[in-house]
């Protein structure tokens, strides 16, 4: 594949996309792990929300 005289710019653009989108995906994934971890920790301590035993209301 020949990218012509401006190959560096094309490669940089794709690398930038990889970094930005990869960063977004990593942020979302790590955030999910952190939050579920914290939630599990708190629940292991026996802390539950007040309404844990009440059924959820039907509609908003």
């Amino acid at each position: 594949m020949d990218l012509g005289p401006h190959a560096a710019f094309i490669v940089t653009a794709y690398a930038a996309a990889l970094v930005v989108l990869g960063g977004l995906i990593a942020w979302v994934a790590f955030d999910y792990r952190a939050q579920t971890h914290k939630l599990a920790e708190l629940e292991a301590l026996g802390i539950k929300r007040r309404s844990s035993d009440r059924p959820a209301p039907a509609s908003p």
Partner: peptide, 29 residues
Amino acid sequence: LFLTLHLAAMRNEILRRRVRTLQLMQAQK
């Protein structure tokens, strides 16, 4: 990709708010 990330981020935010509520309850306790 946007839809996936947005839904996942929304899920994270909901969990974050739950964590916050539980932490407040823990502090109260």
